[in-house]
Design a protein around this nucleic acid. Structure first.
Length: 183
DNA sequence: TGCACGATGAAC
DNA sequence: TTCATCGTGCAC
């Protein structure tokens, strides 16, 4: 399997969030290849999007969101879980896509239903924030066979504080897939 | 230097 | 509905 090209990520964040569905997230950890199929994502559009971490400005934590596309932005949430995002759009545009759930494909031994759990199952930690996903070892690739499915759009989870941005349909998931988080 | 608050998940 | 648990951002 080959990493998706940089130009895949260098596009409108909502398009990337939708097209990431069905792709394979691959992480090789101590000789073992762990693979999950992406079944749920959320788009975070940039500093103007009040639900995005980049809305607070450029800080040490969010620096990677402001950088070039195709890099991982991983952060600690609620003091106990790591969450993984993929940086989108051109260098300087602080947007990203949160990976919210995976369907286990290979070497997955715990739940991948939710952003915190999938990082735990895949062995992804915030030490990897800033990692270039155009590398072998940790990347996203096309699935072996083309598949078709219906995409459901919903408001994002846990962003009620973001005023009107909380209502936007920026959460995407594969219809009827049992590994999607929260019903 | 202190403190309120999460892009969560599990238990009650 | 409550709680575990701690880094981040901002107030003081």
């Amino acid at each position: 399997m080959k990493p998706l090209p940089r130009k895949f990520y260098d596009r409108d964040t909502q398009i990337v969030a939708k097209e990431l569905l069905g792709k394979y997230l691959v992480h090789r950890v101590k000789g073992e290849e762990r693979i999950g199929r992406i079944v749920e994502t959320e788009a975070y559009l940039g500093p103007h999007d009040l639900a995005a971490h980049s809305a607070k400005g450029r800080t040490r934590r969010t620096e990677v969101m402001f950088g070039p596309p195709g890099h991982a932005y991983v952060y600690l949430i609620y003091g106990m879980y790591d969450c993984m995002n993929v940086v989108t759009e051109e260098d300087g545009h602080a947007s990203a896509v949160l990976i919210r759930a995976l369907e286990p494909m290979k070497n997955i031994s715990s739940s991948t239903k939710g952003p915190g759990l999938l990082c735990r199952a895949m062995g992804i930690t915030r030490a990897m924030s800033g990692h270039d996903l155009l590398s072998d070892g940790f990347f996203i690739a096309d699935p072996p066979e083309k598949e078709s499915f219906t995409i459901v759009k919903r408001p994002r989870v846990g962003v009620d504080y973001a005023q009107h941005w909380a209502k936007r349909l920026l959460r995407f998931y594969i219809r009827e897939n049992p590994y999607v988080s929260k019903k």
